[in-house]
Design a protein around this nucleic acid. Sequence first.
DNA 1: GCCGACGATGACCGGGCGGTCACATGACCG
DNA 2: CGGTCATGTGACCGCCCGGTCATCGTCGGC
Lengths: 216, 216
Amino acid sequence: MPTSTWTRLSPVRRERVLVAAMDEFGTHGYSTGSLNVIAREAGVAKGSLFQYFEGKLDLFAYVAEQTSLRIYAAMRPWLDGYDGSTELSRHLTDALEAWFDYFASHPLERGVTAATNMELDPAVRNAVRAPVQDIYLAGLRPLAERAVEAGDLREDADVDALLSLLLLLLPHFALAAHTPGLEGPVRLAGEHPEVRRANIARLLGPVLADFVPKGP
Amino acid sequence: MPTSTWTRLSPVRRERVLVAAMDEFGTHGYSTGSLNVIAREAGVAKGSLFQYFEGKLDLFAYVAEQTSLRIYAAMRPWLDGYDGSTELSRHLTDALEAWFDYFASHPLERGVTAATNMELDPAVRNAVRAPVQDIYLAGLRPLAERAVEAGDLREDADVDALLSLLLLLLPHFALAAHTPGLEGPVRLAGEHPEVRRANIARLLGPVLADFVPKGP
DNA sequence: GCCGACGATGACCGGGCGGTCACATGACCG
DNA sequence: CGGTCATGTGACCGCCCGGTCATCGTCGGC
């Protein structure tokens, strides 16, 4: 958790530190990322970083959390826009498409997401991922509940299981879609929008299959 | 590339070093993995490691390559067993199922595969993944060609594109299926074999859809 | 019994790391 | 003005890293 000093800091200085940390951690990951580099790029003394955060892990957790909040804010219109009047799978396809676009145009957020999901050390994963998942769950759970009300999900659907699946799979899809040197799985990021939509729908299909009602 | 000294080493000593390196790199990844730890666990002086390999990256590349060879050897019966008399998708489902089982019972190989696929540094990725992919391609390409002959793949199918897709997606599936704390995506690793088979087939479906013949 | 080649060894090197701390700076107050 | 306090700073600490190398033991050939 950031210190009280951090919260009192000028927004300009906060943003400089945050961007430098997102860049460094997003490029090199947690363990290889260097506080010396972050301080230098932010134009701040290294000692200041320790006045703002309890240590390296605290800074990384903050970066991951802020990144999730930015992504969440960008996805908010799609999460709030679902009222059951459109089909759930169609709505999720829209959201996933917007998500891909967001990563494509926000390399810092993409890098941090990659670093978070590719972290091997269980201690670091646990420290970072729980708050991040809480943020996504806060947006996804109401959507799932609205879908049950609307009959788009089976009444006895295990909502927790569905949300776990989405949280596990979606980052993989999103990141794989922008893996350098390949267009993306199943040509997800292809040039023709209608092809891309169809591919997203195909990826979502097996994820949702257990949860949607059987009949028409 | 290992030195000539390494090839002259007693198999017992070679195996001790290889296992220690697989364990360390598989647990902590490349950059965080320590040569000091590897030397200690292998019961070998650190200087010896530099008589066997050109440096840390050389050792990691060797570990990744040997791991691929072990996995490839275990999958060999499934690769060679395809002669066009069974359906391709059914055959690949068998192979993927065997792959999951292999990872579940071989934690060292699973760890190294995870470390290889989760590496962020492009230089390390390139040094490691090219030889690894060559190994898999050597097994998969003949299978794909046999499938074209048997009419299981469209004659004009882009075999390279299909192989790229398989190489990109399959490790993700295999690793996600054993992510600690979750049963696996779409309950891949569920208890009922028939459910698992169905889920594997659903995952493979979109990967193959562009490549199989349209009609019956 | 001597020798030269090979291989094993661990003390040692320079460097970068996360983290600390004594001190400088400057705003505010009596 | 002096005193206090929050904040900024970078030299410094101990540690571990990948990598080197002088040294020594152990062989097979003569």
